[in-house]
Simulated assay, not measured.
Amino acid sequence: MAGVSGCIKYSMFIFNFFFWVCGTLILALAIWIRVSEDGKEILTSSGDSSANPFVAVNILIAVGSIIMVLGFLGCCGAVKESRCMLLLFFIGLLLILLLQVAAGILGAAFKSESSRILNETLYADVKLLSETSDNGKEFREALTLFQKEFQCCGLVKGAADWGNNFQQISQSCKCTNNVQNSCIQYESTFVYNQTCLSLIKDLVEKHIIIVIAIAFGLAVIEILGLVFSMVLYCQIGSK
């Protein structure tokens, strides 16, 4: 009868040990943010006050816990040659992989819809730029920093989007090098001709591509984990 491959056994252990360590770090960080005063300060000071700032932290706690449990099952299943633990590890990892595939399919199916919603949201937010009240203050501050970093001005109509607020943010729109008609004059100030709308959309698309690449890399690792666990499971059964 065939024995258990030591290479697969210890490869499985090392793989799941790092898997467990990653889950522990994610869980520890999420719990620290959730319970510590410093963490609460960070959450409440950044983000929309109308949204629950702890939703993302709760998700991280759940993800970290699941990764820890799966890593533990994989490590113990490999070392103790437990078919039950390896089977539970296989099922858990398979469910995660299926959820990733489902999320990818839904993301691809609703990509055009997401682009439309983003476009409509940005067009709706234009009116916040010319307001002088606290409404939309965070958005104005964020766009001011974005303008300075990415050398653009306004969202749709350029500097005119800012209305009476233009003089307050003019430095972030100020254009110093007029290369290939990149600058135009507005209220005696040379500002960037490029609006920020298209740049924001391009940036979002680039981040989506990065997320897809990370998800693809995780899927490859998960498939390897599934293969190793099933091979080890079968080898233990045939001992």
Score class of each variant (00 low, 15 high):
C196S: 03
L86E: 00
A102M: 09
F13Y: 05
G104V: 06
E205C: 01
G154E: 02
G6M: 04
I59P: 08
S50T: 13
L129G: 02
I66V: 15
R116C: 01
D161L: 05
L94N: 01
G158C: 06
N135V: 13
K148W: 06
L70E: 13
C7V: 09
G3C: 14
F17E: 03
S49M: 08
Q167K: 09
V204M: 08
C7K: 06
V231I: 15
Q151T: 08
K174I: 08
N164Q: 09
A78F: 11
L226Y: 03
F228E: 00
I14L: 13
Q185C: 07
S188P: 07
V63Q: 04
I236Y: 07
I31T: 03
M1T: 11
G6H: 06
F216P: 07
F54E: 14
I96F: 03
S133E: 08
I208A: 00
F18A: 08
E205A: 13
G154H: 00
L27W: 14
M230G: 04
M68R: 02
M1S: 13
P53A: 07
S82I: 04
L73S: 08
F89H: 11
C75E: 05
L29E: 07
S114Y: 11
S172N: 11
S114V: 14
I67N: 04
L70G: 05
E141P: 06
F110G: 01
S11F: 06
I210A: 15
G39E: 06
T44K: 11
Q168C: 04
N165K: 01
A124C: 00
V55Y: 10
C173F: 03
T121H: 12
L73N: 08
D134H: 10
G154N: 01
S50F: 10
K127P: 00
L88P: 00
A142Q: 11
G23L: 11
L143K: 04
S238A: 12
I209R: 02
C7I: 05
E205K: 12
K148V: 01
G39Y: 12
I210G: 15
E81C: 02
Q151L: 04
V63T: 12
G217I: 15
V57Q: 00
G6F: 04
C153G: 05
L224I: 14
I117Y: 12
C196G: 01
G136T: 09
G71A: 09
C7H: 03
L86H: 01
F190T: 13
G74P: 12
G104F: 08
F216A: 12
S11T: 07
S36P: 14
R116D: 14
I26C: 09
V63A: 10
G225E: 07
S115P: 04
N52K: 02
F17N: 08
W162Y: 15
F72I: 05
Q100F: 03
Q167R: 08
R83Q: 15
A159E: 01
L199F: 02
L122Y: 12
F18L: 13
F110D: 03
L29F: 15
L25I: 15
G158F: 07
K174D: 13
D202W: 00
A215M: 09
G74T: 11
A78H: 09
W32Y: 12
N193P: 09
Q235I: 02
L43G: 11
S82Y: 12
Q147E: 11
L60F: 10
L60H: 02
A78I: 07
V231F: 12
E149Y: 08
V101F: 14
A2P: 15
L93Y: 00
F166S: 05
D38I: 11
A159W: 01
C75L: 05
